[in-house]
């Protein structure tokens, strides 16, 4: 078996724009799934609506492409009815934190044994670039033409507070680390939440002075602050530079989980 076997090769190339990082995250996930030796017929990919949620359509397992924001309850149903399945959810920031916010915190509270991979492109990409709950303050989008004036969600803190067992954040630039985080999250009993910041040059970068992929990737690379480094800065009492976001494993604990394979 190779990673190529996990793709529905007849459907490639996929619909993502040139330079979109969603494909990178699918690569990292499938690489992780493959390295764990999971079987195609025992793995279910579930998604909601949005760019990110098109991903299961390109993966050759049984897959469920559901309604907007509802991927987690669908996945809960699959996992509770048949705990022997490995369930992975692909979702986006709008899908997960706006319309699916309630489902998200409750899935974390139940600590159900699924892996949630959130492709956070900080925008509603598929509908044409409207502001999402993760759009940074001041960023331009079609619905925030004068700059976003609401505070964005920190999805990782939300997941931690709600009770998820494993929480990590990486970007689509950090492919190796992301691959390791997903591999770890897939094995972890309980809800593993991996937020991946992903470039959207078409709808986010274009309006925010990051027109090409390279500049978006460089911006993500420059603003990523390792958790270990942040902890060191905090311990030394040094200020954390503005506009940085923390990457790394943010939570790793062993609370009782629901729906774990017997």
């Amino acid at each position: 078996m190779s990673v190529e076997d996990w793709y529905r090769v007849d459907r490639l190339p996929h619909i993502f724009c040139a330079g979109c990082g969603n494909g990178t995250i699918i690569n990292c996930t499938l690489e992780a799934v493959e390295s764990l030796g999971w079987k195609i017929d025992e793995t279910i990919f579930v998604s909601g609506i949005g760019c990110s949620s098109r991903a299961p359509g390109y993966i050759s397992t049984d897959s469920l492409h559901t309604t907007h924001g509802r991927a987690l309850p669908f996945a809960t149903g699959v996992k509770m009815a048949k705990p022997n399945f490995n369930v992975v959810v692909f979702t986006g920031d709008g899908d997960l934190s706006a319309i699916g916010g309630n489902h998200f915190i409750h899935a974390c509270r139940r600590n159900i044994d699924i892996t949630v991979i959130c492709m956070n492109n900080q925008i509603y990409g598929m509908t044409g670039g409207q502001g999402s709950p993760c759009t940074p303050k001041g960023a331009l989008s079609t619905t925030t033409p004068y700059g976003m004036d609401e505070n964005p969600f920190d999805l990782c803190e939300l997941a931690t507070a709600a009770g998820a067992n494993y929480v990590a954040r990486w970007t689509s630039y950090h492919v190796k680390e992301l691959n390791q985080a997903i591999t770890f999250g897939l094995q972890k009993p309980g809800l593993s939440f991996i937020e991946v910041l992903v470039q959207c040059p078409t709808n986010y970068g274009r309006r925010n002075k990051l027109r090409d992929v390279q500049s978006m990737i460089s911006a993500m690379k420059d603003h990523a602050l390792l958790k270990e480094k942040r902890d060191r800065l905090l311990a030394e009492g040094k200020p954390i530079p503005d506009g940085m976001f923390v990457v790394g494993t943010l939570t790793d604990r062993n609370r009782p989980a629901l729906g774990v394979k017997q």
């Binding site: 190339p13 996929h14 990178t24 690569n27 492919v175």
Partner: peptide
């Protein structure tokens, strides 16, 4: 293998 993993279009092998 970074090029293969980062390639969003699964084009590198």
């Amino acid at each position: 293998g970074v090029c293969q993993m980062i390639c969003p279009d699964q084009a590198i092998s």
